[in-house]
């Protein structure tokens, strides 16, 4: 197999790389761009720990190939805070106690971010639905809902 060259925007920076076309997006982000906030929990697109935003939409990077992001905009948790200023969701996740082990946190925050970008005032049910692809085994989700609701109020 031959390497392919792809160019895309990662966390507001234009980047390009030569990579194997069958490399998973997850592996490319972690290994080639050191975006280790992107976690692998299952490798089958079920747990959501590897969620990144692709043109503002949450996708599981373990079920995508590197080549699929040619020319697109990707956001990982590394790119969420701007100039050292935390995103509102990062603040409310801390304040609400929505973080325990932290392994689901990057994907969870990004799914919540995608929701708020599309719908600035979601209901509890809309929050549940938006986060239903992100599994958490520690928190019982309740403080995560609260964190998202706190971010709405701000």
């Amino acid at each position: 197999m031959e390497k392919i060259k792809i160019a895309f925007n990662l966390n507001d920076q234009d980047v390009s790389i030569e990579t194997m076309p069958n490399k998973r997006l997850l592996d490319m982000l972690r290994e080639d761009f050191n975006c280790t906030s992107v976690k692998e929990g299952c490798g089958e697109g079920e747990c959501g720990a590897c969620t990144v935003l692709r043109n503002g939409e949450p996708v599981t990077s373990c079920t995508m190939l590197a080549g699929q992001v040619q020319g697109e905009r990707l956001l990982t948790l590394e790119g969420l805070s701007k100039n050292g200023e935390l995103d509102i969701l990062q603040k409310t996740f801390m304040e609400a106690g929505a973080v325990q082990c932290g392994f689901c946190t990057p994907g969870m925050i990004l799914s919540a971010k995608a929701l708020l970008m599309k719908n600035p005032h979601p209901s509890r049910d809309e929050i549940r639905r938006a986060l239903s692809g992100n599994l958490c085994r520690c928190t019982g989700y309740t403080k995560i809902f609260k964190a998202v609701e706190m971010a709405i109020e701000e």
């Binding site: 280790t36 976690k39 801390m94 973080v99």
Partner: peptide
């Protein structure tokens, strides 16, 4: 006091290093 967890900041920034990292 419901102080903010010691590990919260590194986890919301995605900087916390797990073994696979």
């Amino acid at each position: 006091q419901s102080v903010i967890r010691k590990d919260a900041l590194s986890k919301v920034l995605g900087e916390a290093k797990f073994a696979a990292d």
